[in-house]
Amino acid sequence: MREHAVFTNRWLPWVFLAPSLAVLTVFLYYPLWQAVVLSFHRANLLLGTRRFVGWGNYEAIFTGPLSARYHQVMVQSFAFSMLVVVIGLSISVVLATLAAQPLRGARVYRLLLIWPFALSPAVAATIMLFLFNPEIGGVNQVLNALFGIKPRWLDTPQLAFALVVVTAVWKNLGYNVVFYLAALQNVPKELSEAAAIDGASGFQRFFRITLPMLSPMTFFLVFTNLTYSFFDSYGLIDVLTRGGPIGPAPFDAVGITRTMVYQVANDGFTGSGNTGLAAAFGNIVLAIVALITFAQFRFGGRRVQYGDH
């Protein structure tokens, strides 16, 4: 790779970079450090009092009387994220592959598959909230007419959890299909055509050619979808279930749709009155994410290039 640098001015690049670096330092790096500091304090949001407690907040999370809820929230978060990633990406890759074929009307199919990109978590959840309302929702009116049943979608733990997963998959679909379609443009058609002439079935071509060729994009999407379901799912869950309902034992310490970010926001702004606890749990979440990212790049990232050689 040839060097690109053209201009040699010493201070001008820093002028261009200064606004970005200032914002990142003040609003990301410094809060990150403050999160560590805060996690060693017992801090009250309303009174503004702070008291140094050492590892107290972390102990409360791992071994204290309330630790069961944190453990449950972690397990739920992982289950939720795994389901959203696996189901969402499987559906997306199949649909994108089908819509990338030279079919009649393929452009229309593509457009109809990617528009949910514009769907926000709160809007998606608001529509589902009405659709699955037990009394007046469209789904139960159909189910009642056909089978005489009216499931309590948002009060039944298993159903509520499934509904949150389905809504998240739906909301993410457009994003995933957009990126898979972009990647499919770079898959050489000759490979697939040659395989077809050699008698490979559609399934064989999909699993032996398309899927391996798409693996760098899948790697990227697993990362973005994981971060999405870990962090951006708050709005969706807040509108749809408010973190509830309480699950069956052993998931009865706290609501079954409560994720880690939901717990952080809850501790920080509504619940315990100790924002240090929220900061401590936030740091644990951050460490988990760093670990996952590291593992992903370490074991799966070899095939993807991010510019530097």
Partner: peptide
């Protein structure tokens, strides 16, 4: 710059709120 991809605002929300 790239490292900030791993620092979602949602998790830093408590100190960011103070700031």
């Amino acid at each position: 710059v790239l490292l900030t991809l791993m620092m979602p605002t949602e998790v830093l929300i408590v100190p960011l709120f103070d700031l």
